[in-house]
Design a binder for these strands. Structure first.
Lengths: 356, 356
DNA sequence: TTTGCATTTGTGTTCGGACACATTAAATTT
DNA sequence: AAATTTAATGTGTCCGAACACAAATGCAAA
């Protein structure tokens, strides 16, 4: 335990021949300062590398921060339940620093609800906002509002290029699709067919899914794998019977070797049908570590899951906001997550490491 | 910015009718306390959920901590260079909290050097130690010493079951081998042969590698893939010519479909020979994101890399120690990393996310 | 009863930065 | 030149825990 010296405001005050208060005013440019004093302090600041003690700063400014979280209702979809877990974990982590997290859940299938819930969140006058802006048109005006009232906000899951957030946290969807394609083509040879399966209950994320499909398809053209044909199936999962009928039709595709499900809940739906109809030599690549998906991964019906890690996305998003508010850190505007490939064999290592 | 209330020592003092000093003595059981006062304080403590303000605690106890890091010389091996990067990054992260990191590099090929360097590290009287204990027998006595002088220590890379560290950080090697096997068997059919390749300059980590091999082999027996035969090649990379000759022999194995290289530098060595001899339909699974390996992954000679993430291991290890020293956190003794599967298509997402 | 010593407990300062308030110096008005 | 405003800067307190030191108390011996 050595007592190591660190430059403090008092040191700077001594060095520049002014008081600590003046140095403080220069650092935060609050209050008026004479040109003379400013110069003296600035000169010293340029010479040294002053790093304020964040502990003292946070302790001294006895404010606490409130972060509003605007995400879909976790009860409606297991994917968003994972996200909610990340929020809870982040709240625990940051509560000791006086950061509180207030979730505002909107209806995943109702644009209007997004609008009203966003309004409610705003009434609470948060110091920062985490948003999953799955409704493009409804999201734009609220970002504008955040900007004018200079509330920092972080986007997760869905990027909106027009927005100007502290950071976007999520996957590169195009590349994600290419990873799916790559996993499909391992060990395949000769001519074969593949299917891209979009199964969703709502249309909000169609852009989302098309981007994945694009990455998937272009993988084959870029690698000149011309003997591989790709068909697309666009299904709603509202009408189960119709969906099953469509998928049965799909399974009749000659020489079908693989199915790429672009949604997380589509993955286990496809898996259940593959299992039901005994098609166990069709490779299935899906998304996310939903409980249902894990069962099919373990039993071998699903071969690969690409992990979008919604839990970690939410956690990181709140951490970014907290770091920004408490420690004034800034972040790279594009925080793209690794495209994690989950298999039967490495699954447990991912589940275990998430605990800590 | 709401001012939220938090229970402080003074609150507890008021509630239990004693002074703050007495509460402090109870909390840290330092100094003698009358039975009466102790009871009063304990009663209050049981009623409330006191969470000490970590910021204030750390600020108040003006000590700074020194962490000694005992790892192989990064100049000798690119793998350990990645580790050194993690150390540097952790040092930056924690320096503001008064934690300093002092690296002590030992010779990767010289057990005696481990012993002497460990001694040097000890002379500096560190408050915590991060060790990569690649020399089993030499490591045991120094762990004993840490225990008797109650210096917390964290292990990375190589686990030593007899040790009792704050935590071990690394991979489950057996499972890691199984992941390698799984990647090998994707899309394979009929009878085929696979090779396990141990290429290393030193014998220290033979246990290490055997564990991976075990996981690899048992994958096939457990999944009843009997038509797959596995051969093992144990090579030193001191004598390049001899190694090449051996590998050429290996490449003549009938129906050879894949090579599993258990070491990180063995991976690109194997890749270079595969490329040189035009064997481009043999699947190669290797380890770690060394610059050389990345080249071969991009060009398609290496198909998969399992990432041991030495950088993140070092970073996490130092963070554990810092959290323990500053905030008295304790950790799960086994902190196993996810077994990350890196392919040509998801590589960039991993490289980019490491920047932040 | 008083002195001496040990035990117990309260008070005060420190850490470094934030911020309120007091004080000084300079500029302006009367 | 004195009075008053305004700008500039210094001082002091607070945040909450840690720890040193001082004060108070108890108890036994003189």
């Amino acid at each position: 335990m050595s007592n190591h010296k660190n430059i403090t405001i008092k040191d700077i005050a001594k060095m520049s021949g002014v008081s600590a208060g003046t140095v403080d005013r220069v650092l935060h440019n609050r209050g008026r300062i004479s040109e003379d004093a400013l110069q003296k302090v600035v000169t010293v600041l340029n010479q040294i590398d002053y790093k304020p003690n964040l502990l003292a700063r946070t302790l001294g400014s006895k404010k606490s921060f409130r972060i509003a979280v605007l995400v879909p209702d976790p009860e409606q979809d297991p994917y968003w339940m994972l996200c909610a877990n990340g929020i809870r974990q982040a709240e625990e982590e940051w509560s000791q620093y006086g950061v509180t997290v207030e979730p505002y859940f909107f209806d995943l299938f109702d644009k209007a609800s997004f609008h009203t819930v966003a309004g409610k969140a705003n009434e609470s006058n948060p110091d920062g906002v985490l948003v999953a802006p799955i409704f493009y048109h409804e999201a734009l005006p609220i970002f504008e509002m955040y900007t004018t009232s200079s509330i920092p906000y972080v986007l997760i899951n869905t990027n909106i290029p027009e927005a100007n957030p502290l950071s976007f946290i999520g996957q590169d969807l195009y590349q994600s699709g290419s990873v799916g394609a790559e996993l499909m083509s391992i060990g395949q040879n000769g001519a074969y067919a593949l299917a891209v399966l979009h199964i969703y209950e709502d249309v909000h994320n169609s852009v989302h899914l098309l981007e994945k499909e694009k990455g998937f398809r272009e993988y084959f053209t870029q690698n000149k794998l011309d003997d591989c044909t790709v068909v697309t199936y666009d299904l709603s999962n509202h009408d189960e019977a119709a969906t099953e009928k469509k998928i049965l039709e799909l399974l009749d595709t000659p020489n079908l070797k693989g199915i790429f499900s672009t949604t997380s809940s589509g993955s286990f739906l496809a898996a259940s049908l593959l299992e039901k109809h005994g098609k166990n030599n069709i490779r299935l690549v899906g998304y996310d570590l939903l409980e249902e998906n894990l069962q099919y991964l373990k039993s071998g019906v699903i071969d690969f899951l690409i992990n979008q890690n919604p839990k970690h996305q939410a956690f990181t998003g709140i951490s970014h906001l907290a770091n920004h508010l408490l420690f004034r850190k800034n972040f790279h505007p594009l925080y793209l997550f690794p495209l994690e490939v989950i298999t039967k064999q490495n699954l447990s290592s991912y589940l275990n490491s998430a605990i800590h």
